[in-house]
Design a binder for these strands. Structure first.
Lengths: 69, 69
DNA sequence: AAAAAATGTCAAGTATTATTTACATTTTTT
DNA sequence: AAAAAATGTAAATAATACTTGACATTTTTT
């Protein structure tokens, strides 16, 4: 859907600010480390549920972490 | 992922406040009416990209439209 | 009341997210 | 320098988002 618009994020920085490892974050939000890696690399566009959980875990709003370009 | 936690939303109300039909909203965000219907009915968990586009279209933050329970 | 617009439902197919497992490389700690 | 922790990569599978098309029902407009 909408190939021109690309979802980007600064999860890596936000996660590191909270001093969470990929594995810790994955465990907090109930997903796997692979999923966190793929998101941080911009390889995919996570579900809204997952981005809400992630934003809670790193203490930011969804818009502070994910943005469109 | 995470079956206990359910994603809910009040898109229908937000869309109506902006006086957009499902079809207009779908066209603005570059998706189909079916997708908008399914989201409004809570039948699925849209991608973050789509929820960001939707929140822009209805002039709210993602968190104002989508929430976890 | 008739016409038009908006919403709802069903079903099938495609694309993509997410999980799992396993191993390699890099970074941090001792 | 060795050990431990964190990160990166790859591939196969399962689950689900999203698309497309077609028709039915409800609501709004004329």
């Amino acid at each position: 859907m909408n190939k021109e618009i690309v979802l980007k994020n600064n999860l890596k920085e936000a996660r590191q600010q909270k001093k969470l490892s990929q594995e810790e974050l994955a465990s907090i939000v109930g997903t796997t480390r692979q999923t966190i890696i793929a998101i941080e690399k911009g390889q995919f566009n996570p579900s809204t549920k997952l981005s809400l959980l992630i934003s809670l875990a790193v203490d930011k709003s969804v818009e502070e972490i994910f943005y469109l370009e």
